[in-house]
Design a protein around this nucleic acid. Sequence first.
DNA 1: GTGGTCTAGACCACA
DNA 2: GTGGTCTAGACCACG
Lengths: 134, 134, 134, 134
Amino acid sequence: MIDPRLFSIATGSPEPIYRQLVEQVRRRVLAGQWAAGAGLPSVRELAQALAINPMTVSKAYSLLEAEGLLARQRGIGMVVAEAPGQPPPAAERLALVRPALARVAEQARELGLAPHEVLTLLSELMEDPDEPRP
Amino acid sequence: MIDPRLFSIATGSPEPIYRQLVEQVRRRVLAGQWAAGAGLPSVRELAQALAINPMTVSKAYSLLEAEGLLARQRGIGMVVAEAPGQPPPAAERLALVRPALARVAEQARELGLAPHEVLTLLSELMEDPDEPRP
Amino acid sequence: MIDPRLFSIATGSPEPIYRQLVEQVRRRVLAGQWAAGAGLPSVRELAQALAINPMTVSKAYSLLEAEGLLARQRGIGMVVAEAPGQPPPAAERLALVRPALARVAEQARELGLAPHEVLTLLSELMEDPDEPRP
Amino acid sequence: MIDPRLFSIATGSPEPIYRQLVEQVRRRVLAGQWAAGAGLPSVRELAQALAINPMTVSKAYSLLEAEGLLARQRGIGMVVAEAPGQPPPAAERLALVRPALARVAEQARELGLAPHEVLTLLSELMEDPDEPRP
DNA sequence: GTGGTCTAGACCACA
DNA sequence: GTGGTCTAGACCACG
């Protein structure tokens, strides 16, 4: 079973808890970090580990089930859904960051930044996210 | 007067409309793209152009006035405030997109994307944001 | 605004209330019975009309929004989403009844019924659902 | 002994597994497809063949025994009970699919489908259920 | 044990 | 006014 300690929520964030959970799971499943069929922590267990209400976890799980990323096994719990046949292609995963990237690009243009400035910064951030600011 | 068509809102975005407006104006003023004293569209005019509630525009203008970026001129409307003294250096403007860029970079890494894939996409988006997806 | 009295729930049914609502709305939207942009009853209003908890209505609306059939207009309420470009083709609507039809066909075969017997019955039911049984 | 491969369950269906089993058996016994006295697969064997919990099979068998369709024979297992007297007429068996068929017909009408479209689809499904979708 | 559903009530952000 | 989120607690069906 997937370790409940792999999940985390930022209580101070404006992003709702259930959505933080949804996106954590979605990214890990799409990236293939969890094998198909792997069992997720039960609603009650994860709720206790995160000190939140079980319904909040349940809501996240339900949305992921509707999305087809998780499957319900009755009496067992939630498991990672079988991939529809193919491992997720890079193009599809790339499409997931496109909207956020487009928003940043728009902001950079509004700030009058040159493309190479932004690209250089992104390159650094992709290589080593924890690098101290110059 | 500043053209209302320069403003845009993404209705599908989770970001509130008033904040989208605030940050668009803030970035353009900080980038020096609008001269001090330039007049902004009236609340009613901008609200109609964007098909949103006038109260939403008013809220954005009020926040920008409180921040000192806009000033209210009786009988004229909102104008761009005098620059506080110095034109902002590129490094400082670049720092404004750093958090958003870092967030995207983290998501991309979680998705197992290679840096060059993301950089290529950003490069395209910086050059021509309206380019149709392949 | 769409009349709340158009909605109905069968309290005795094993089908959950929120799902009854989801499917009622889905069929009507897909059949084009409601124009794009038409406003749905507010959560509170529909909840009161049906004498159920507002969260139950909210859950149904949220699922329909995730499915893309409804859209949230902030401060206004839920509206029927714009069709992606085309009115829903008959083939797509037909596909929606395929699983249920396949299940019935399987049952009929298990009962040793001849195809023409079942087809005749369905034909009657399609023409006049309230016809008394022979 | 009745071949365990005659049984099938749809894991994705909202219908509980034990009820899928109960109704499959009930239909086949009523249709006279299995002779009285024919032996059913053992609980363990069927559970393994369907990859489900033995308790689920046991529950289905118990319900069918209570209904009088199956009988428990010591040392042998479950067998098909003696027919209550008369072979069931076709009209009676047809009545068993009527409710499900009426439900599908109602959904099809709500979707604005023409009777002949639905009848054509059902005809295909009755002839060859495993035909690939066009 | 598992998840699902519904209720009741509180608080929040947005328009 | 709108919907969204979270909590708490109850009951149910399934395995």
